[in-house]
Write a protein that binds this DNA or RNA. Sequence first.
DNA 1: CGCTAACCGAGACGGTACGTCCCGTCTTTAC
DNA 2: GTAAAGACGGGACGTACCGTCTCGGTTAGCG
Lengths: 188, 188, 188, 188
Amino acid sequence: MTTAVSPRVVRSRTAILRAALEELAEVGYGSFAIESVAARAHVGKSTIYRHWRDKLDLVADSFENAHEHMVPLADSGSARDRLSLLIQHVAEVVVDSMFSRCIPALIEGAERDARLRDFQSRYSALRSRSLLELIAEGIEIGEFVPTVDEEMAITALLGAVFYGRLMTGSPFDPLRARELVDLILPPP
Amino acid sequence: MTTAVSPRVVRSRTAILRAALEELAEVGYGSFAIESVAARAHVGKSTIYRHWRDKLDLVADSFENAHEHMVPLADSGSARDRLSLLIQHVAEVVVDSMFSRCIPALIEGAERDARLRDFQSRYSALRSRSLLELIAEGIEIGEFVPTVDEEMAITALLGAVFYGRLMTGSPFDPLRARELVDLILPPP
Amino acid sequence: MTTAVSPRVVRSRTAILRAALEELAEVGYGSFAIESVAARAHVGKSTIYRHWRDKLDLVADSFENAHEHMVPLADSGSARDRLSLLIQHVAEVVVDSMFSRCIPALIEGAERDARLRDFQSRYSALRSRSLLELIAEGIEIGEFVPTVDEEMAITALLGAVFYGRLMTGSPFDPLRARELVDLILPPP
Amino acid sequence: MTTAVSPRVVRSRTAILRAALEELAEVGYGSFAIESVAARAHVGKSTIYRHWRDKLDLVADSFENAHEHMVPLADSGSARDRLSLLIQHVAEVVVDSMFSRCIPALIEGAERDARLRDFQSRYSALRSRSLLELIAEGIEIGEFVPTVDEEMAITALLGAVFYGRLMTGSPFDPLRARELVDLILPPP
DNA sequence: CGCTAACCGAGACGGTACGTCCCGTCTTTAC
DNA sequence: GTAAAGACGGGACGTACCGTCTCGGTTAGCG
C-alpha cells in the first residue's frame, strides 16, 4: 500500500520535475541550477530540497519521468519493416527531443553517480529488449540470417544511431534506418 | 614569425594542461575546478587565466593534447586483419584510458561550446578517415563486398564501440573487434 | 465570563511555556527556535502558532511565567537587616537562576519589542517598590539618613547587583549585600 | 612585525566594520544579517567571510572598533569634579550613542561567545580603572572618605548608570552624575 | 452515549539568511 | 617585468528556521 500523498505534494513534484527537465535540456548538466528550477516551477528552493536530497537526486528523478516510450509504431508488416520503423523512431528521438537534449547530461552524470548509472542501464536494457524481440521474431520467420549474434547486431544498430549524435556533428538520418537494418541484418 | 616563447611559459602551459586533464579524468566535467587545476600544477590561478579565457577554453585545449593517436598497430596482414586491429585499439582506448574518462565531459561540453564541438568533429573525422582508407583498400582487393556504404559501415563500427561505454553499463569487449568487423563487413 | 478552556489547551500552553523558558535559558535568545520548543514540548509547531502570534510573543509570555518572586525572606529584624536580605536575595537570583539566564534575552528583546519592554518596566518597578518600602520604613525609624534620594539609592543598589552580571565577568557576591547597603545608606 | 596589508584590504575591512556597527545599532543582534552588512558596505558576502570566520567573529571585531574612548574631559579641578564629569560622560554614552545601541547585543552575545565575553571584560576593566585612579587620588588628597571599598563604590557608580538603561525604561540622567558621586562617596 | 466542533500532530509550503565553494577579474608583492 | 599570491564582487550550493497553510485524527462536552 502506497502512503497517501496530498494533492499539494503531487502538484509541486510534477511542476518541479517538469521544470528540472526543461532546465536540463536548456542549459545542460554543467549549468543546471536548483535555484533556477525553483524559479521555473514557481516554487521555493526548500520545497525542492524537501523532496530530493540534492541536485543529482533531482536530475536522476527527472530522467525517470523523461524517457519517451519507444512504442513500436506498427505491429503489422514484415519483421524487417517493423525493425526499421523502430530504429527510425529511436533515431528521431535521438536527433531531436527533450530527451535527446538531456543525453549529454545523462552521460556525464552517470559517470559519477550510481543512481543515474542505474537509470541508464535500465533504460538501455529496455531499448535493447524491444529490438531483441523483433530480431528473434525475424530470425524465426526466416527474414534474418539465423547465425547472427543478436546482441552485437543490436549494439551496432543503436550505436550507429547514437554515435552521430554524440561524437560527431552530424546525427544519424532517421530516413536511413532501413538501410542500416539491411547493412547489419542482411536478407538471407 | 612566431613570437619567441619563454621556457617558463612553456613549463607552465605544459604543467597546467597535464593537470587539467588529470582533473577532468578524476572529478569529471561537472566538478572541474580551475582553482583545483592551479593547485595541481603548482601555479597561480591568474597564470591559467593569462593563457586561457575561461574554464571551457582550458578544457578544450586540454583535449587537443589528450587524444591518443590511433596509429594502426600493424601495416601488414590482410585489410580485414588490420581493420580489426584498429577497431580493437579504438575499443581499448574507449574502454579505459585518460581520454575515455574525459569523453563524457567532451560530449557535455560540445553541446554548448563551439570550440569543443569543433574538436569533437575534427577528431571523429580523423577516426573515420583511417577506417575509410582501410575499408576502401579492402574493397579494392576484394576482401569486402564492394556495394557497401562505407560511411554507414564506419558509423556502425564506431557506434558499436562507443555505445556500450556511453549508454550502457557494459563497454564493448575489444577482443570481439574481429566479430564486429565480420558482422558489418561480411566476407564476400 | 471567561470562555471555558479545555484541559487539553491548558496542558499544551503549560508545556509550551515551560519548554520555551528552558530553550531560552539553554540556547539564548539568538538561537531560540520555535521548532525546537515544539519538539521539547512534544507539540506540533502549529499548536504554538495557534496561541502566540510569533517568536517574540511567545518569549514575552514566557517571561511573565518566569519571574521568581522577590518575597522578602524575613519580616522581622531591623530595616537594614531586611533590606540587606532582600538585596542578597536579588543578587542570588541574578547570579544564577532560570531568570538570570534569560536576562540577556530580555534586554535584547526589550530593545525592539514593546511588549517585552513593558514587562521589563513592570518587573523592575515591582523590584524598586519593595526596596522603596523598606527604605522609607528605615528612614522613618531613623536607621537611614533621611536626606537621601531614595530613587537614586535604589538605582545604585540594584545597579551594583546587575552590573557585575551583565557588563563584567564577575557577578556581585550576594554575601556582600550588607556591605553594599552600608555603603549607599550609611548609618546616621 | 605586522604583515603588510594592502590598501584594498584596509578599505574593505573599514567599510565592513562600519556597516556592521550600523546594522547592529539599527536592527539589533537578533536580526543582524551578514548579507545586509555586505549590502550596506557595497561588498560581496564572500569578502566578509574572507576576513571573519562567522557572524559572531564580525560582531566581536566591530565592538573593538566601536568603543568610544572615555577620555576624562577635564584634567583640572577637584577629584570630585573630575569624577563627576567622567561619570557624566559615561552616562551620556550609555544614554545615547552608537555604542549604547549595541550594548544589548553585546550582553546577549557575551552570554554564549568567549570572544565577546573577553571584550566585555577588557572594556569594563578599562572603565573601572579610570574611575579607580580618580578615586584613589581623591582619597589621597582627602576629598573622599578613606575607608571606602573602592571596588564596590565603582560598581555602584557604574551600575546606577547602566541599570536604568538596561533594566528599566528610564536611563540615568547624566546631569545627576554629581549627585550620584556624592551619594556613594560622600564628602568627609 | 453519541455527535460535532474545536483542537491537535504532522509536516508541506514559499521564503530568507546562513556559511561554503568556486567563478572570472583585479591588485599587490616579490623574484 | 612577469608570475605568484590572493582579495575582490558575484552567485549557487545545501541547511536551518521562519510564519502560513492544509491535512486527517482525536477529544471533549452538549444535546
